[in-house]
Design a protein around this nucleic acid. Structure first.
Lengths: 198, 198
DNA sequence: GTCAACCTTCTTGTATACAAAAAGTATGTC
DNA sequence: GACATACTTTTTGTATACAAGAAGGTTGAC
């Protein structure tokens, strides 16, 4: 994980030797990686670890915002009382992590909260797609948590989202979630633009 | 296309012989098919053409509705005058196909219209995801076109969508598109429930 | 007669060998 | 000296051979 620099070419034979297997399983693994978008395959050129440009990442955040909004919209209509209790519980755990100042724990509990939401959409397919996107954006979601005040802000957004779902207010849940994720994209943009040139 | 019944097992060797190639390219093709969701791979068992249950298909329609709504929302904010002209043109072609009573042509022109919309979201990633979903739902979108009055209704929905985008009314474009696709899911459900048991 | 265990066969997963294509290098010509 | 062309090398794509696992059938015991 993170062993290879973005844009680096992955050599089939050396990886095969290193893992003591033939090229075949390596190639199959490459296909799976290409599928999940971590690498790109160029015909007759080889596979390269994806250099997700900032534009692409922002686009992905934009889509994630809409997907999570969809989850919220459906969850607001379908969540049972025990679902909402679970959501409140997950949010409380986020709060505890924030109070402890533990960014790593918050990051983890935040993931739990969001996945719970995906599941509560009551749509398995949507849940899968949302999880897939979430995983791809994971590293970028993390970096913006270190911005001053972001944890507190994120928490407040969560709380408002839970209440909208509890109230069965589908459009509001959708709007809040869209904004919640869109903000993450903006924060990412902010972090990127203040980084030294690569 | 449609050569194999849902749930049928695809044999590597016979397909390899038939296409005069070795098993390797067949296996790679299977991976791609599994990726796009047309087949499922069971370890040591083989690949089976996906028997998408009605529930799964309805879930996919629900997601498609949200994804297209997202495209519409963004397109309403980003479409240029020439984009809108293109959209009107594509819609006019649908109208012509409908007037000619050519369901196949309508089906095709309808696809063009929707793909145009995906592109006009101005988000390449969203465009790809929407296209991917569109392809998976293709066969199911088609069958509901044969319902009486559906072509006319679909056309009217298209026209309203174009006007909302032209007016830059993002929420309205999103809502109209969500409904437009959701109706397709409902129609599919309708067709399914009136089919003899398999 | 039925159930269980073993064996055979069929099929996928992996390894390796070979072919084809692309990139880099060297040589020859202008 | 520079550019183009041909050759070499490197790397992917494909074929085939082999191994391992799963399914089904057969045989034996209770």
């Amino acid at each position: 994980m993170g062993r290879f620099a973005p844009g680096a070419r992955l050599d089939e034979v050396s990886l095969a030797e290193e893992h003591k297997v033939s090229r075949t399983p390596i190639r199959e693994a490459f296909h799976r990686l290409a599928q999940s978008g971590l690498v790109v395959q160029q015909p007759r050129r080889g596979v390269f670890v994806r250099t997700a440009s900032p534009v692409e990442i922002l686009e992905m955040f934009e889509v994630m915002a809409e997907v999570e909004a969809a989850c919220g919209r459906l969850a607001a209509r379908r969540a049972t009382d025990s679902d909402i209790a679970e959501l409140r519980q997950a949010n409380a755990e986020c709060q505890k992590a924030r109070e402890a100042g533990d960014v790593d724990l918050y990051y983890h509990k935040n993931g739990v909260f969001h996945h719970l939401l995906y599941a509560q959409s009551g749509n398995r397919f949507l849940e899968q797609e949302a999880s897939r996107l979430h995983r791809r954006l994971k590293p970028y979601r993390r970096m913006q948590l270190f911005l001053r005040g972001r944890l507190q802000q994120s928490m407040e957004e969560h709380t408002a989202i839970v209440e909208a779902i509890a109230a069965g207010d589908a459009p509001r849940a959708a709007d809040l979630l869209r904004d919640h994720v869109a903000v993450q994209g903006e924060k990412f943009h902010h972090v990127m633009s203040h980084l030294p040139e690569a």
